[in-house]
Amino acid sequence: MNSRKLAIMRLMDSRKKFTARELAERFDVSIRTIQRDLDALQTLGFPLYTEVGVNGGYQVLPNRILPPLQLTQNEALGLFMMIEYLQQVPDFPYGSMREHLAEQYFSTLPQDVQDLIVRMREHVTFVQHPGKHTETLTTEILNAAIDKREIEFTYHSRNGYKKIEAYPIGIYYDDGYWYMPARHRERVLLYRVDRMQQLKLLDSIDESIPSLQAWLKTSDDRKAVEVVLHFTEFGTRLAHSDVLFQSIQGNEWRGLVPPEEFPFTARKLLAYGPEVKVISPPALQQAVREMLEKSLNQYS
């Protein structure tokens, strides 16, 4: 495909409707040349249709095919690896297209590059938490967040099922699960997407809802206390791979934690077993003890 056809495709995406004369003047070629270019693009699958009349012209269908990528071999291999990785992330938004995209992209590559990818697949894999199927929810939540639209859903919390109305800020993927921060009444709460059911879009829109990136940059205004933890050598190695404790210095971790987060922090610490000790505050020590006692009582 020559550069003029690529430029025509980009122009159609920006203007939606145009006449052959307008294109001919823009690219300094004849109307017949432009018409041949448009015929060639339609043959390749670019979705055009023609409207006749004074206000007519060529129109791009809404579900249009985007311009092809012009990649080097290494870029093509890297892109295919990214597609392979995304196929392993459970419930990726719009994920129903991933397998189709991989097959379509693979089929357009030269045979020698296809052969290289087949060999490369034997030497790399991506292991992800399988999780509970929630692809429809992640897509709907993301669309609602973009539109700043309120949603209603049933949530399976520690105290059972309850119906919630909230404005989603976005979604993020962490340690095998999708999470949705959302404004419920006047507070922003965090929900695990795999615990959500029966999601419904509501009519309310609130333009004051921040984007996920803006929300992540806001500071936590809750009162916090200093937590001091001591890890063993092995515990330190584990902590370096933990988002919560990776700022560890030596074998000691210090950080500010709101008391409301002590139950969550205590549960995280239990996973380290004897590889970590809470030095302070006493309230977090007590939270860990209580969880340990509950675990031991099951075997008494």
Rank of each mutant, 00 (worst) to 15 (best):
L11H: 15
Y179P: 08
P210V: 05
P68M: 09
P259N: 00
I209K: 03
R158K: 06
F126C: 00
P281N: 02
F264I: 11
D194Q: 00
D221R: 07
Q197M: 08
D147L: 09
L202N: 12
T136N: 00
K277C: 04
S96A: 04
I83W: 04
T154C: 11
I171Q: 06
A239L: 07
I31Q: 15
D203Y: 14
T125G: 00
S219R: 12
Y173F: 15
N251Q: 10
Q298M: 03
T134R: 04
K223M: 06
T134N: 01
E207W: 06
Y58D: 07
L212F: 12
R15F: 05
M291R: 12
G250H: 14
L212H: 13
T265D: 02
N251P: 01
F18E: 15
A145Y: 11
V188F: 10
V225C: 00
T108V: 08
E99G: 01
F126L: 02
Q198V: 10
S208E: 13
L216C: 03
E261H: 14
Q198N: 14
E293M: 08
Q70S: 15
L189C: 10
A20M: 04
F264R: 03
V225E: 11
F18T: 15
L256Y: 13
E122I: 01
A166Q: 10
F231C: 02
D203H: 14
F245A: 06
L6T: 13
E84P: 01
D112I: 02
R187V: 03
E290C: 00
Q35D: 10
P210N: 05
V227F: 05
R222N: 13
A224V: 07
L44Q: 13
A266P: 10
P259T: 07
I279W: 11
T125W: 03
D242E: 11
A7S: 12
Y85E: 06
F231A: 01
V118R: 03
R4N: 02
Q246K: 06
P130V: 15
Q286E: 14
K148D: 07
R187A: 09
Y167D: 05
Y155C: 11
E150G: 10
A102P: 05
D91N: 15
Q114M: 00
V29M: 07
N55Y: 08
